[in-house]
Design a protein around this nucleic acid. Sequence first.
DNA 1: CTTGACTCCGTACTATGGTACGGAATTGAT
DNA 2: ATCAATTCCGTACCATAGTACGGAGTCAAG
Lengths: 133, 133
Amino acid sequence: MHKQDMTIGVLARQAGVNLETIRYYQRRGLLPEPAKPLGGIRRYSANDITRIQFIKRAQHLGFSLEEVGALLRLEDGAHCSEARAIAVEKLAEVRKRLAGLRGIEHTLEKLANQCATQKGNVCCPLIASLLEN
Amino acid sequence: MHKQDMTIGVLARQAGVNLETIRYYQRRGLLPEPAKPLGGIRRYSANDITRIQFIKRAQHLGFSLEEVGALLRLEDGAHCSEARAIAVEKLAEVRKRLAGLRGIEHTLEKLANQCATQKGNVCCPLIASLLEN
DNA sequence: CTTGACTCCGTACTATGGTACGGAATTGAT
DNA sequence: ATCAATTCCGTACCATAGTACGGAGTCAAG
């Protein structure tokens, strides 16, 4: 059983995902559904493990499943500039999110510090900042 | 009509949210539903604008509606240490997300650069990195 | 040749934060 | 008094990324 000719349950374990996730990826068109041998049980190969892990790695880089689909259509490695364009766009998005989160970080830090140094707590600075302006 | 005694539609416009969002917040228990004058139409006050804006500001700081609910229960400003605890926890979350996003940023940047300098594009580095390891 | 484990397939449900719809009632303005 | 606009209320739907369920079929071991 050298990672070849598995059933869906084995594939799920090998790829480290829930069995239902595989079905979901098939429905989304991210993973091919092997032909079923006439009322029998579908068989999967090591290629499917690779593909699932591709999806998971791309997700960890912040790509949505729709975007992963676009990347998978370039999977032959012969469309480098298209792939690059997708990555560059995602990079811009990631940087925008980073900027937003940094702002949030500073605001929260400031408010938490104010709450900490506040003694009489007539009015909590955090609550006050949410109430005002 | 000095921001007092509005109908829900006016409240929505004043607060800058969709009318249905107000109903949704009421269902979620984030916003009180005023008593209805016997088969009539509910009336809202400036307090409700404040409360909706509180919710929106807290969301922009990264709080979920459930967390906003917790903050609203401390709204009197007399529970500064509880509010601070919530903020500190959220700050830790935000920092974790920041670290993750920074890693993604670096990886995407590296891959996009490799794609850019790649000439023969035998195999796109981005695709390759998603396929391997 | 039966039993238990697994697969197939469709559908429904989860969480999150809303948005949309439709019929009935009510309100404001003319 | 009438008419358009608005409100009320329940329910259904959107996106995203899955997870769960249940009945029927199939497969392998004992």
